[in-house]
Design a protein around this nucleic acid. Structure first.
Lengths: 295, 295
DNA sequence: TACCTGCTATACATTTATGCATGAACACGA
DNA sequence: TCGTGTTCATGCATAAATGTATAGCAGGTA
């Protein structure tokens, strides 16, 4: 049961998976290429499986290596999480807290919230992970997450913020030049900014708004920040969060009655962290800041 | 962000926490005491916190060390889980699968199920973890768990087996000697086998059965197997699973109408393991075996 | 073709970590 | 009170892991 495989090997293994080569992993991990190679060789022997097929251009992971990757990643996030916990030792709110949020929230909403938080607690360091992927709190990839859906898992402390409304917007001068669409059908003659890959969002909208389809998008990107920037740049009509648009006088809402989607917003945290001052304080600050944003 | 703390140190750290001393950890890990000491010293310096207070009788963990322990344990179970996954590589059902269950189920019900499973798949090794503690599948402490409650967490493959009935039983010769109780009140003059620490089970029973209280227990143990053994040994009247008692002609049920508790039984597995032959096969075998047991 | 840049693999020197032996401090029991 | 069995800490020799340097191969580019 108590095997003797060094945990260091798993680090190198993960490094090679991430970088695609022994040399790259060595650079990333601060070791040398022969050492990385030896680690992989030792791990392969210990596990009794071939993890990579070697070539002169790098190392190709085998099927097994890909299957093992999530475990190595879990170990990595756990180690990082351990270090964050250790960093918070001492009086008051201090250490490193890791917050996950969508890119739009992270760029448009959180900065002042975090600034105020850091103002009050200078010893607190904040790591911001901006991704739409549901960062699994249970796997310790982040301490706190701002999510656009109700958390379905137990073991989480969750606070509902409310609903953020999503609507179609455009620059006023764009509308002045191209006219303002009064019906869904009229959208077809406009530059509509939307998603590239068909997403859950698109499917939901297609169901709720009659006459709407993905084909209407003439400017397509999956990057929400780029969509927002395109709207602000006057490139066309696109979706953005209503509270964000309201802050900008040059933006106007379009077809408000037809297009209105509500995003359930939650702040979540692993319940183990409830008694950690750094996480508790950050959690409360995020809840407060987001509530103000929604209101 | 990419820190440079060696993962090996966390192993030694966990070893010292488990064993309570450098020497003990060294023995357990197959290293020497000076090495273990150096690992702890290096880790303390790297984290910048004191993990243990040294003494000649061993090392006392500090508060921080205790807070960090769950993380180290998570890394350990993840590493073990990785090795199990690697062990299953190859054709057919092979490798190591780790099953968690309560001690009673593990001792009374699973052996023939596992025997049949291993008969069909000789390359499959089975680790049986018998504990009442909810082994967290999400933390990879086991691959598959037999639980007596509905799983509340997502990300799990769960199959409901049905309800296992729990009732009062005693040996027939005990009842012949002491008489069979006809009412709850009459139990007071009997040797009732029950729990030492007040458990959720007791509270539930006290609510559902009028006149019942923990004070009635004159033989107390928290070990379910010991309770079962006491019943079989004719020491008194106690709770056990009805299907188990039915297999034994010398046992009789007591106050069947008054005392009947249903245990929701589920077999659960992490959804990532659904496509792993060793886990899938074991899961199916457990479901089948338990369904037969319940029926 | 020749050259550059990336990669892996190997041979050898060196640093690093480990093990061994020992000493000192404490707890427990005769 | 004195031995016995723990423990942790330290100095030193050794083994083990690492780094350095180099060779060899593949792919792209002038």
């Amino acid at each position: 049961m108590n095997t003797t495989i060094g945990w260091e090997f798993y680090r190198s293994f993960l490094g090679v998976l991430k970088e695609g080569s022994l040399s790259g992993a060595a650079r990333a991990l601060g070791i040398t290429q022969p050492t990385a190679g030896r680690h992989i060789a030792a791990l392969e022997q210990a596990l009794g499986v071939a993890l990579f097929t070697r070539s002169q251009v790098g190392l190709m992971p085998t099927e097994i290596a890909l299957a093992l990757r999530p475990y190595a990643e879990a170990m990595e996030s756990t180690a990082a999480s351990l270090e964050r916990t250790a960093s918070s030792h001492g009086e008051g709110v201090r250490g490193v807290v890791r917050v996950s949020a969508s890119d739009v929230i992270g760029v448009e909403v959180l900065p002042p919230v975090i600034a105020r938080l850091r103002d009050r607690h200078p010893d607190l360091k904040v790591e911001l992970v901006l991704t739409d992927r549901i960062h699994d709190l249970l796997r310790r990839e982040a301490d706190i997450a701002v999510r656009m859906m109700r958390p379905d898992q137990g073991q989480l402390v969750a606070r509902r913020i409310g609903q953020i409304e999503l609507g179609l917007h455009a620059r006023k001068d764009y509308l002045a030049r191209h006219g303002e669409p009064r019906t869904v059908a009229e959208l077809a003659s406009h530059s509509v900014i939307g998603y590239d890959q068909p997403s859950a969002f698109v499917r939901k909208t297609e169901k709720s708004v009659h006459g709407f389809s993905r084909d209407m998008f003439s400017l397509r990107t999956d990057n929400n920040l780029a969509q927002l920037a395109l709207i602000r740049g006057g490139a066309g009509i696109g979706f953005c969060q209503v509270p964000i648009a309201r802050r900008d006088d040059s933006l106007a809402r379009v077809l408000a009655r037809k297009f209105s989607l509500q995003l359930e917003t939650w702040v979540t945290m692993h319940e183990d962290l409830r008694n950690s001052p750094r996480c508790r304080t950050t959690f409360d600050a995020l809840v407060e800041g987001l509530q103000q944003y929604v209101a």
